[in-house]
Design a protein around this nucleic acid. Structure first.
Lengths: 245, 245
DNA sequence: TGCATTTGTTCCACATAATGGAACAACGAT
DNA sequence: ATCGTTGTTCCATTATGTGGAACAAATGCA
């Protein structure tokens, strides 16, 4: 294990997540390293172009080079490339927000999104994560797990107050999800919304990703719900067994 | 300079730009390092979560963690955050593709984009670069340069055949751009399109970014061109002197 | 099927390159 | 002006990464 490499990435991670440029001392504290060490790491990251230093305030911040790196990675991501046109189509059919999610540990990671210009606020953005138990896509993944209890626990651990669901409720939902091939969830991440989600299956039958359609509960009901569900299942079926992550 | 850190990022950069997972030997060749060295770097990157190894083919590829890092960076980018709503508004007003670009060396980097669902193919995507001389946004930046000749040379160096512009043409255009406060360019990156662009100025008066509106030439003319220009200049004026990159 | 060649992984003595303390410099606050 | 805080540079120490070599596994060829 090249510890120096790990330290370099640790510096960049802290800077990337910081809301504003950071001073050296704040970084040393966050990282638990010597200031001379952090200083040298910053110098190399600046030389590599991943970090910049505000000339006026002498504070450090992550440059856009790492973003370009990330864009390069996602643009070659086969799953997103193959699914993206289907998201477009679903959005045109339903006019709702359409999301692509993959499982990462006990969370879902949102890979892509097609949303109306006046999108619901707090609909998850690309590159963000959410607990499985609180999202429709997560329920889809959980319904294929042998022991989803851990994911339930982790999901409920996050938001300390105002739990929208009980563990029993969540566990009771999973067989239904499995049976229908589709999850329906209400008010998971945002109150008042209803989302439906279905799996994209890999060659071995395991769900590798899920597509979610999300809208206000009043809208996502009756005839519209039926249409959206049909379109969703059709799309997931079409995509079939193509793309490995 | 922590050379080990540089090597670690070099590995990730190569993998990020690779179209498909790479074998160890290909990486060692691309990097000019010893295979044992590359192997250890890969091991640490895997441990850090930035690289994954395809179990079947034993090939390495960049994971989505670096993408998440990039998303975290861009989401806190003050320029993009402040300008993004204006892009939305311009798109609603014109129904055309609207872009946000910043200067990086002699290239422009596209930070954000609001495009119709049926967007022009080959309109630049987020996180991609283009030569200044071939883009409307680039012309805006060049018009504020003391010696834009180098940018012209670099711009024309890239595409070896089928130069859309001559150096004289480009240089002659810049005073007009400066005078109007707006660049108009035709067929720079994609034949048949016409783009207009104007600068967002920093506190010192230098252009820190540019907004571009792009459409097919037939559409971007007459009354529509006039309206788009007015909306563009109004938006750039409004944004004013707020956001440092 | 057997042999040759390329590719991937592990190991370890060596020397380089990162480390962290200390000393210095530059601010900012009181 | 003085003190405390923060940023930068330097350098002896040694921990850490290096790269050759040896082994293992996979692949190609006859």
């Amino acid at each position: 294990m090249d510890t120096t490499v790990a330290k370099g990435f640790a510096v960049l991670e802290v800077l990337a997540r910081a809301k504003r440029p950071m001073r050296l001392s704040a970084l040393t504290e966050a990282l638990g390293l010597q200031k001379s060490n952090v200083h040298r790491l910053l110098s190399t990251l600046i030389e590599l172009g991943y970090v910049e230093k505000d000339a006026e305030t002498a504070r450090y911040f992550a440059s856009l080079k790492a973003w370009e790196l990330g864009v390069a990675i996602i643009s070659t991501n086969s799953l997103r490339r193959t699914v993206s046109p289907h998201l477009q189509k679903l959005h045109q059919q339903t006019q709702d927000t359409v999301l692509l999610a993959v499982p990462v540990g006990h969370e879902v990671l949102f890979l892509d999104r097609v949303a109306p210009a006046r999108a619901l606020r707090y609909t998850p953005l690309n590159g963000t994560r959410a607990p499985m138990a609180l999202t429709a896509a997560g329920r889809v993944f959980m319904s294929a797990m042998r022991s989803p209890a851990a994911a339930v626990a982790q999901g409920l651990a996050e938001p300390p107050a105002g739990q929208p669901f009980s563990p029993e409720e969540i566990l009771a939902d999973l067989p239904l999800v499995k049976q229908r091939g589709m999850a329906v969830i209400e008010g998971g991440l945002m109150e008042g919304t209803r989302s439906i989600s279905a799996a994209i299956h890999g060659p071995d039958g395991a769900p590798v990703a899920a597509i979610t359609i999300s809208a206000m509960a009043a809208r996502m009901s009756g005839e519209h719900l039926r249409e959206a569900s049909d379109a969703l299942l059709a799309a997931c079926g079409e995509i079939g067994e193509l793309a490995p992550v």
